[in-house]
Design a binder for these strands. Structure first.
Lengths: 166, 166
DNA sequence: AATTTATGTCAGCTATGTTGACATAAATTT
DNA sequence: AAATTTATGTCAACATAGCTGACATAAATT
């Protein structure tokens, strides 16, 4: 510590008056923490983690997507994906099929087992969302969806538009 | 694989027709992914991670909170907290002060340095939120906040109510 | 024929979480 | 006053999920 005064404790809290929207920052933190806690409990029974969940989810939502496409959605490296994907293939949740046009590509598909697990993981999350929307009007619901979409980096919003059945 | 049919690829995507709200599930994933990417870049310059951010944030929002209270908010173990907290103390971002009433307790306070960093981390997140609300009316904004709060486990909502300056 | 691309794999590292065990000082209870 | 409980700290070992760098292979492209 170069300066003794630098170690002085500040006893006043940061508030909205500091020009920062702390309430929504914290709401996002708490909401996401609890939103992910539901599937985490189920995954633990399978020896899987959140990484497996994300892979399984997008393979179910975009069956036939390639490894490269999946990496782009998840924004992780292929080495990170490899371990998790291998486990999901070994346990029969996902299968790889060589691409027809480009035989270098591996298209990823869920099996019946993988689909069942994906649904089981999504169910409590969907229930939580439905409960949170319980007293909301349709326009309010749309406002929430617009807000969440606007929180995503503009250049990455095309990823959302590619997903089926909005 | 016991059953050959179990390995059959499913080629149809999961959609809303499966009774699950996939769109909001995915919006939350993408929104949170990008929401946390802003401070992550700043933290990397300090050799800190997301764990440091969370500690620094709540110490700034609730100056004087004890170690036990912080553990309760973060929902991690004291051993996990210890490493991160030690680094924040060693670098002069946080100071510990022995409790006055109960001298076993360690009250945590930010220093000027810690407050500056907390603000720098919150600023881009707040900017992103403001941009996402740009075309929203005040009631729409309230609807978003109600939704996010309703996503939190009911028994944990008291944590949100304890925070200052809503 | 040479190069690029899609994927896989090996090795090692980091950050952040976990459990279990034990230590200390201060508060509380008996 | 002694015993117990509580708040905190610390050591050790471990798991998960990310990372970088290097290299291999097969297929597509130039």
């Amino acid at each position: 510590m170069a300066d003794r005064t630098a170690a002085e404790p500040i006893r006043t809290p940061l508030t909205i008056e500091d020009g920062i929207d702390f309430s929504v920052i914290e709401l996002l933190f708490f909401a996401y923490r609890d939103f992910t806690s539901d599937p985490d409990e189920i995954l633990a029974d399978y020896g899987f983690g959140r990484a497996h969940h994300r892979v399984l989810h997008f393979v179910n939502r975009l069956p036939g997507l390639t490894v490269a496409e999946l990496l782009d959605v998840l924004k992780i490296t292929k080495q990170s994906l490899a371990r998790v994907l291998k486990q999901l293939i070994d346990t029969g949740h996902i299968v790889q099929i060589q691409g027809l046009q480009d035989r270098r590509q591996r298209e990823l598909y869920p099996t019946a087992k993988g689909r069942t697990l994906a649904l089981a993981l999504a169910r409590p999350q969907s229930r939580r969302i439905a409960a949170a929307f319980h007293d909301a009007t349709p326009p309010e619901r749309e406002a929430v969806e617009r807000f969440l979409k606007a929180m995503v980096d503009p250049e990455l919003r095309i990823q959302i538009d590619k997903l089926p059945g909005e």
